[in-house]
Structures are given as structure tokens and as C-alpha cells.
Design a binder for these strands. Structure first.
Lengths: 336, 336
DNA sequence: CTGAAAGCGCTTACAG
DNA sequence: CTGAAAGCGCTTACAG
């Protein structure tokens, strides 16, 4: 690859001049500009991004820490999030450096990435990486709450408790008392938040919460989310009474629907279904169309991007944002 | 941020020594190593990736050119591809720099990215970017065929003609003669390849091809892929006779299924459906489970990664790879 | 095992 | 409008 030096020599100018021709940071006369450009083209010269980054101490790259499960199935939620991040960052001239490594344990090996800022998904409890970024002076925005809630850390998140509360209130208003709740894995904080929200809805209306039967997804028992939904209905429909089921995701709802078809249970006449959705299109393409909660993953990603960009300009920026989830009533629920 | 200089001074050693402690490229005595490490920790020093990259002329980053449609809906195929690329590259210590910009028209603005190699999706006809990468001496692997087929360009791709040929042969063997083919957009090369493959199957068995009715997806008419499937069936089921339908994707098949339900057409008794799938999980979660062609998008991505990694080691590497598509017979087809 | 110095390819005050 | 030179933070022969 030709360097700026090659161009400068052949064009009979200084490196600074060549630099200015490309960066336009200071005016260069037309004749000189033309000569430099033509020599550059002749030599196949392109400015070296790395050298430039080193000199100006900026890369125009945003790091995205998004661990990918070994099973490899990136969820629809993650994809939409990623889309949001990409769109927002691209709009402002930033590129995305994907970091999907599960963890960096060895501090010694930890080297700085060529990024101006970082968006990190699903922070763990007492996540050590957070302070490391702080130490490295790299602007950071989380998607998901930091565990010890810290007023100095920027993040965007849904309010899962609120969301479950709204779903619960809606079902109660429709006259449903006995609910089967196919929750996420037991060890996820989101599962706890949801149960709390649901409980709150029952308490507020003075209805005993023990009408709710909660199950948890378990990789050991359920091969796929769809299996989880299918098997749970097959197994529970005679054991406990319920007129509505709240589904972890729309994939799970697919399994629920399959089971109801086989059992001759009509949706929504005999059973109402609400999914805590993450794939809007799928919800709309099912029959009946699925009543679901839109988590706005793309908005989550875009907002994270927006805040990070602001923070890269002004490092003192701190913003903690709750993105609204919307209950969208379609065809799979009805009032009793 | 502390630099290597700060550490060297405070530890009373040279920069080269500090460098060696971190890179382990030459042996440093234990006492010195300890001192350097402790000073580094004290100062919060992390090696600067950019400076390092400039010095060694390697970034350990792979660029992925994956234009994102404005509608923003990244397809399942793209996601799986991306997953394949990520896994393969991560395994070898490379990171992914996402480039989703539609095009770079202005040659002047085109600057080199901080990458050691590039994977580019869906090359256009006479794609100028290809020679530009060559000029910049950046190893390149395409996902999809280069248009003027060029023996020096590495790529991975499905064989869409072969794939459609197999689907056609399968359906003919099952006794189907009249087929409705819901193809992709008319302007995509993949659409043409498929028609050729299907035609070949008919010719080989000496059956008149005019039993096949081909439609094309059209953004103007169809709001979503599912709409495309739904509307096509609603519209065609009385106009032309067909016992089987070949569907562009499994999303389209969702629409087809919805239409058949409404019309009281039983699948597969009255109608067989084969999808040129891109989302295996969805195919398995539908009812009936969808007979579909697995395009192996993840394999496509992983192979592209593998070839690129090889090429970054040995620039003379050239490999052109056709990844097999597999027809997976599930529940939506039956023999007449 | 360690150091001094040149070099990676840019940018940017400082001068003119 | 342009040039000379220092600097960005590393690595790596070359010496010892």
C-alpha cells in the first residue's frame, strides 16, 4: 500500500499538504489539490485509518459487547437491538465492532479495543467490566440495569415489573382469575421482576395470587421454547384450572397454540393467550394473531446508541432511560 | 490513559521491556516482570490496540460488509450467516467490524478500514468494490457469486439452480404436476436461477413446464412476506389448478398456511407445501411442520470466515465453495 | 535478559 | 496557502 509519504514525494509537496487535501481541514489551492489527487489515484493511495486514529485519538468505532450463547441462537430480541444500535450509530458516522466473547477473566490479557465507546448488553451482578471501562476512560452505556444500581452509570432498559403488572391488570380486568404463567428461566432477574409485577396487579385488585400457577423454562426439560409451550399445556391443562396463559415469548406461544389445537381448545374462546413478545412480526403472522407485549428492542438499541454518542462528545453525560413496553391486544385474548 | 512510557519510567525499565512483558515475545526475568505488572496495575495501564496495530500492521479485525435494507428487517438468513462468521472468526481471535452502509460511491472519501480482511455479502454486477480491495491488498471473500465469474475471486454460495432442481424433482416424483411457485422478487438473480432449476427438473422428466405458475414477490403489492403468501393463495386457488406450492421462504409459508386454513384446504392432504427456507426453527414450529430446504446460512458464513482466515495467512489462497442445500421432508408434503 | 533508537502512517500546532 | 518537525503509543531488529 502506498503511504502519504509516497504521495507527497511524487507530488512534490509535504505530507501535511497531502493530509489536508484528504481531510479538508485546511484549504489547499486547486492546482495542488488536483496534483495530489491524481498522484494518489495513480499510486492507489488510501489514507490509513489506523494511523489516523492513533494521531487524532479517535476511531469512530463503537464496541458492542453482546455475548452469544454457545447454542448460537441469537434471539430476535438481540437482533432487533443490534439493528437499533446499527442504525443510530451509522447515522452519526460510527461503525460497530462486535464483541461476542463470553468473558474476559484474565486482566492481564485485557487490552483496550480500538473503540471510542462501548455498549454492553446484560451486565452481570457486580460486573467488573464496568469499572474497567471507567478506568480506561471509555464511555459506556448498558442495555439492562447495572446490578448495584449506580447513579453514575448510563443505561437503557425495559421495566419488566411494570410490564408484567400491566399484563396482569389487563387479564384481571377481562375477568381472568386463574392464570398459567410460562415464565423465563428461574435464575434470570427478569423472571423475578415479572412475578413481582404480576403479584402487584393481583394485590391491587384484592384477588388471591394463588390462582396463578408459575412455571419456568428449563433447558434440561425443554428442547426448544416451542417445546416448552407445548409440553406445559399438555401437562397442565388437566392438573390446574386456568382461563389465560402468559407466555415467555412468542416462540413459546407457538407451542401453546399447537397444543390447544391438538386438545381441541379454542383460542380465545376457551383460553386467552398473552405473549411477552420479542418478535412482533411473528406475533402478527400467527393465527389467531397474538396479543403480545412489544418490548421495543430496536428502540432500546437506538437509544443506547444515542446516549453513547452524546457521551462520547461530553463524557460527563449520564442518562438512565426506561423504554416503554406496549401491550398490543390482537386476537388471542377475550374477556370472560 | 497511562501509556507504555509512563509504566517504563515508573518501573525503571525501557519501553521495550514493558512491551515484552505484555506480549511475551521475548523472555523477561521474573523480578522485572513482577515490577512492571504491578506498576501497570497501579497506573491502570492497558496496551493501546491502535498503536499496536500500526506497529505490527495487523488489527485482528475482519470487516463484514452487510448492507441493511432501509426497512431494517434483517432477514433470518443474514442473522444465521452473521452467526457463522462470528463463530469462526472468534475462534481464531478475530473480531468483526460491521459495515452496513449501502454503498460508497465517492472514491475520494473511501478510506481503508482498520481490518485485516473483508467478507462481503451479495456482490453486485461488476462490483467496483472488489477491485478496490484488491488494489488495497485486502484479502476478500464474497458470500454470493461475483457477477462476471472470476477464477481469482474467493467466494461461498449456494447453488440455487441445483436446489430448485431438487425441489422440482422431488415434487414430480411425488406425482405433482401443477405447481404454484411463489418466487422471490423478479429482479433478483436467485429468482432466475431457481426458475432454471425447476425447468430442468421438468425437462428431465419430459413433463410440460407450463404446468408451473410462477409469481414474484413485489414490495408494492405485498406488505409482508406473509401477506405475499396469503394473498397469492387467496387469489390463485380458483384461477389455476395446483397440487403443490413452492414458497420463497418460511415466512411466506406462514401466509400460505393461514390462507389454506381459511379456505378449508387441508395441508398436506389437498395441498403440498415446500419452502425454500431460511429459518429452520420456524419451519419446525409450524403446524404442520414445514417441508423445507435448509440453505445452511450459518455454514455459508462459517466457511467464508474460514477461507478468509486462510487467505489472511496466505494471500495467494483462492477458494470457491458451493455449500449444499438440503431438502428436509417434514409434514407439509405428501405423494399424490 | 535488557536498552536505545528507528519506524509504523498519519495529524497538527508553529512558522512563514 | 504550504512546509518542517514533533508527536500519537506501540514493536522490533540491533547491540550488548
Amino acid at each position: 500500500m502506498a503511504t502519504i509519504d509516497d504521495v507527497a514525494k511524487l507530488a512534490g509537496v509535504s505530507k501535511g499538504t497531502v493530509s489536508s487535501v484528504f481531510s479538508k481541514k485546511r484549504p489547499i489551492s486547486q492546482p495542488v489539490t488536483d496534483r495530489v489527487l491524481s498522484v494518489a489515484k495513480e499510486l492507489g493511495y488510501f489514507p490509513n485509518h489506523i494511523a489516523r486514529s492513533l494521531a487524532i485519538k479517535k476511531t469512530m468505532i463503537v464496541g458492542l459487547k453482546m455475548p452469544i450463547s454457545k447454542e448460537g441462537s441469537t434471539t430476535q430480541f438481540e437482533i432487533q437491538m443490534l439493528n437499533g444500535v446499527i442504525k443510530e450509530c451509522t447515522k452519526h458516522g460510527y461503525r460497530i465492532l462486535l464483541d461476542t466473547l463470553p468473558e474476559h477473566e484474565d486482566l492481564t490479557q485485557f487490552s483496550s479495543d480500538p473503540v471510542d465507546g462501548v455498549i454492553m448488553l446484560n451486565p452481570r451482578k457486580h460486573d467488573q467490566r464496568i469499572e474497567r471501562f471507567e478506568q480506561m476512560r471509555i464511555p459506556l452505556v448498558l442495555v439492562g440495569r447495572p446490578d448495584p444500581l449506580e447513579s453514575s452509570i448510563s443505561y437503557v432498559d425495559n421495566d419488566n415489573e411494570q410490564l408484567a403488572y400491566e399484563v396482569g391488570s389487563y387479564l384481571l380486568e377481562q375477568g381472568h382469575r386463574s392464570i398459567l404463567f410460562l415464565n423465563a428461566s428461574a435464575n434470570m432477574t427478569v423472571s423475578v421482576d415479572r412475578v413481582n409485577g404480576l403479584k402487584k396487579a393481583y394485590e391491587e385488585q384484592g384477588i388471591p395470587y394463588d390462582n396463578v400457577h408459575v412455571m419456568n423454562f428449563d433447558r434440561q426439560q425443554h428442547a426448544t421454547p416451542m417445546d416448552y409451550g407445548y409440553m406445559s399445556i399438555m401437562q397442565m391443562h388437566e392438573q390446574v384450572p386456568f382461563t389465560a396463559v402468559v407466555s415467555d415469548t412468542d416462540r413459546v406461544a407457538l407451542g401453546i397454540l399447537r397444543a390447544t389445537r391438538e386438545l381441541g381448545i379454542h383460542v380465545p374462546r376457551d383460553l386467552s393467550i398473552v405473549a411477552l413478545s420479542n418478535d412482533v412480526r411473528l406475533a402478527e403472522e400467527m393465527s389467531p394473531k397474538l396479543t403480545s407485549v412489544e418490548l421495543s428492542a430496536e428502540t432500546l438499541g437506538a437509544e443506547a446508541g444515542r446516549i453513547l454518542i452524546q457521551k462520547m462528545k461530553d463524557p460527563s453525560t449520564v442518562e438512565q432511560l426506561i423504554v416503554d413496553a406496549q401491550l398490543i391486544v390482537r386476537e388471542s385474548t377475550r374477556s370472560l
